[in-house]
Design a protein around this nucleic acid. Structure first.
Length: 544
RNA sequence: GACCCCAUCGUCUAGUCAGGUCCAGGACGGCGGAUUUUCAUUCCGCUAACACGGGUUCGAAUCCCGUUGGGGUCACCA
């Protein structure tokens, strides 16, 4: 069934950032190509003149590159079947469409959007459920009138009266009856092809043998098959991959950000007026947002920024900014819908996936995107990564985030890496937890551990004793500091290290949780450490 | 609403195609414990599923039908 040379493709439309579902589609295509020794094509589907942009295209390339997904043929790298941008292939679509019209397989249709809306509305209540467009006859007078109005006709494909049936590589047999198919548009009024038409022409011209895409396209395939038939071309194989659901169920989408932002606002009782104040947005707009009248992502983002909410990551860039490692995301994504089925292995590098992947191991059930598991896996990759790898990751992370890490030296970053490697699940977690290194604490807390560990009568005196011993210490290496404090604990606290370590930790880090104390002190340096101890002692010594 | 797809622990899944070795295995999470200067790491244990109802069969998570449930699609978007 698999031809000698597999050619498959990922074909995003440049209308925004790369969605994580798109990333999974791209990944599976790449893996399939690798596994079969075939070729992967990246094609840009920019036939929507309004929404497509070159900027978006560049960002999609960037996200794919970050993931390590590099196509063999693409607008960037070229190839024997280019151009790989649909807007550069318009003449070809027109030519093929004209051939279809000449052969009586396609025809011009003149309804305006308003007229189509009316037709749909009329069909809504009927037994067929939705409009199934069929060829309509126009009188010469009507045609003359339309032309006089300046209307631009679309070209519709005349679908055969037979229905469509195909064997999906993943789902098996799929069939749709003839009466459920309609004469759909292949050329728009502006002369651009619709997605359906451009896809077929390009896949054919680019010698694509396998179309692997998400299940949301399942019914589209019947349209594409109809085009192949009309053209007398033999279609490629099709495989429809399970969808990625959010934890709530339903396709993972940008709207999830809006839902999360709204839910938090409602739960915390933020009014539209209060939100308007904090975001600078129009109050009526925010009221609509809260009332679910709009799921505007921009509004969600503004609210998220103002309230410091963590909105769900949806686009690949969201995961980059949140401090995930691409190898972890790739590994996780691969397991969403695919499983090797041998042993219990679930850790794979991209190369290993390219060897293990197989289409018949792709499932048919939608998979929920479980961030807990992703976090776990990311933590695993962080722990396993070399310091150099993490340094590079931190640099990438810092470049797209507002963080003191951006101006830190490699040396400092490397020290932070050894301190946080086994306790951070994301680079952001490292970033946030390490903030105290860059800014001297001005408050110490939280209340409960503070009372229990520092203001318990022994903490402050122990801190003072430690301060004295540290002040006299010349060797500020981690090992020397450890020996020193251990000795102190032995002498003062019956060997209970915590009695000294916790007050010290709170003093220098601002709280009861930090990486190993001696590493922290070493990185902070003697002067800074002592200054922090003094500040803490001054704060609590005075009132105690 | 019409059409299409799907259905194993809370989640990702193995097992389903070739019915018995499955009173269903692994992982995440959760809970409990050990290690530990805090947190984390690491290690150990526990938790929890074949949606339901009919068939077929000596035997069904596995095959068939139905029901229910979930989801997707119904654009001059892709």
């Amino acid at each position: 069934m698999v031809p000698d040379q597999v050619r498959c493709r990922f074909a995003p439309s440049p209308t925004g950032r790369l969605h994580v579902g798109g990333a999974r589609t791209a990944l599976f295509n790449l893996l399939f190509a690798r596994r079969t020794g075939g070729t992967m094509i990246l094609r840009i589907e920019d036939t929507d003149q309004l929404r497509s942009s070159l900027a978006s295209e560049r960002l999609i390339f960037e996200d794919l590159r970050w993931l390590g997904i590099i196509a063999d043929e693409s607008p960037e790298h070229g190839g024997a079947y280019g151009p790989y941008r649909q807007s550069e292939r318009l003449h070809r679509y027109k030519e093929v469409a004209q051939a279809l019209i000449d052969a009586g397989q396609a025809y011009e249709a003149w309804e305006s959007n308003e007229e189509l809306d009316a037709l749909r509305k009329a069909a809504e209540g009927s037994a067929q459920g939705a409009l199934k467009y069929r060829r309509r006859a126009y009188t010469p007078e009507q045609l003359a009138e339309y032309r006089a109005e300046g209307r631009l006709p679309v070209v519709r494909l005349k679908v055969a009266g037979t229905g469509q049936r195909f064997v999906d590589l993943i789902l098996g047999e799929v069939s749709v009856a003839a009466e459920d198919l309609e004469d759909f548009v292949i050329l728009k009024g502006d002369g651009f092809p619709t997605y359906h038409f451009a896809v077929v022409v390009d896949d054919h011209d680019m010698r694509v043998t396998h179309v692997l895409r998400a299940q949301e396209h399942l019914l589209n395939t019947t349209k594409h098959l109809a085009i192949y038939q009309a053209l007398g071309w033999s279609p490629p194989e099709h495989g429809h991959m399970p969808l990625i659901f959010s934890m709530e169920g339903g396709k993972m989408s940008k709207r999830d950000k809006a839902k999360t932002a709204r839910a938090r606002c409602l739960a915390d009782g933020h009014s539209a007026a209060a939100l308007a104040q904090r975001t600078g947005l129009d109050e009526a707009l925010l009221a609509d947002f809260l009332a679910k009248k709009t799921d505007d992502v921009e509004i969600a983002l503004a609210i998220g920024a103002a309230l410091k909410l963590e909105l769900p990551e949806i686009d690949v860039v969201d995961f980059r900014a949140a401090g995930y490692l691409p190898e972890a995301l790739v590994n996780f994504l691969a397991l969403l819908g695919w499983n090797a089925g041998v042993g219990d292995r679930e850790l794979y590098t991209l190369d290993e996936l390219g060897e293990a992947f197989s289409l018949d191991r792709v499932g048919s059930t939608a998979a929920r995107f479980d961030r807990d598991k992703l976090r776990w896996m990311n933590g695993l990759y962080i722990r396993q990564a070399s310091d150099e790898r993490l340094l590079r990751g931190l640099r990438e992370y810092a470049a797209i985030n507002d963080t003191p890490l951006a101006t830190a030296s490699d040396d400092t970053l490397l020290k932070l890496i050894t301190l946080y490697k086994e306790r951070a699940t994301t680079l952001r977690e490292l970033d946030l937890s390490a903030r105290f290194f860059f800014e001297r604490p001005t408050e110490w807390g939280p209340e409960k551990p503070l009372k229990k560990q520092l203001l318990n009568g022994r903490g402050l005196p122990n801190l003072a004793a430690a301060r004295e011993a540290l002040a006299a210490q010349a060797d500020w290496s981690e090992a020397a500091l450890e020996a020193l404090v251990h000795a102190l604990a032995e002498a003062r606290c019956d060997g209970k290290l915590g009695e000294i370590a916790q007050p010290l930790r709170i003093a220098v880090s601002g709280g009861p949780v930090s990486p190993p104390l001696f590493g922290v002190l070493a990185l902070l340096g003697k002067d800074e450490s002592l200054a922090r101890i003094d500040a803490c002692a001054a704060r609590f010594g005075a009132s105690a």
